[in-house]
C-alpha cells in the first residue's frame, strides 16, 4: 500500500470521470483533502501481516452455491417495465445517443 498520499488533483478528476460525477474546482480540492485523510487512516492496514491469509470476499466463506433450475418464469408486464422510464417509445427505453 502506498505510504505517501497518492491523491492528487489529477487522480480525483480521473476517478470522478470513471464514476461519472462532475466536480467543481472547489469540490476537487475538498475531496482531495478528505479522501487523503481517509486513505491515510486506511493505511493502517499496512501493519497487518497477510502474507499467508486468503481473502474473504464473502462473510460465509465457501458454501454450496444456490443454483436455479432452468425453467422460464413469467416476466414483468411491459407496462411495469417501462413505468419508471424517464423517456420511452412503444416498448423501448429511449436514451440520448452514445456519442455526439
Amino acid at each position: 500500500m502506498p505510504d505517501t498520499n497518492p491523491i492528487d488533483k489529477k487522480t480525483v478528476e480521473h476517478v470522478a470521470r470513471l464514476a461519472r460525477i462532475n466536480l467543481s474546482a472547489q469540490e476537487i480540492g475538498l475531496y482531495k483533502k478528505q479522501l487523503a485523510d481517509i486513505l491515510e487512516y486506511i493505511n493502517k492496514l499496512n501493519k497487518v501481516d497477510v502474507k499467508n491469509t486468503l481473502p474473504t470476499s464473502h462473510p460465509m466463506g465457501k458454501i454450496k452455491n444456490v443454483f436455479r433450475k432452468d425453467s422460464a418464469k413469467k416476466s414483468l408486464p411491459v407496462e411495469d417495465v417501462l413505468r419508471n422510464a424517464p423517456n420511452k417509445k412503444d416498448s423501448l427505453f429511449v436514451v440520448p445517443k452514445i456519442i455526439g
Binding site: P2, V12, L39, T53, L54, P55
Partner: peptide, 25 residues
C-alpha cells in the same frame, strides 16, 4: 469516489485485496 479509487487499476491489490485478507483475520 473512494470506492472507485480503491478498485481502479493499480490500486486493487493494495486496497481491496488487502482489505479482504484483513477481513479474514
Amino acid at each position: 469516489l473512494l470506492g472507485t479509487y480503491s478498485l481502479s487499476s493499480g490500486y486493487y491489490e493494495a486496497y481491496y485485496l488487502k482489505a479482504m485478507k484483513v477481513r479474514t483475520k
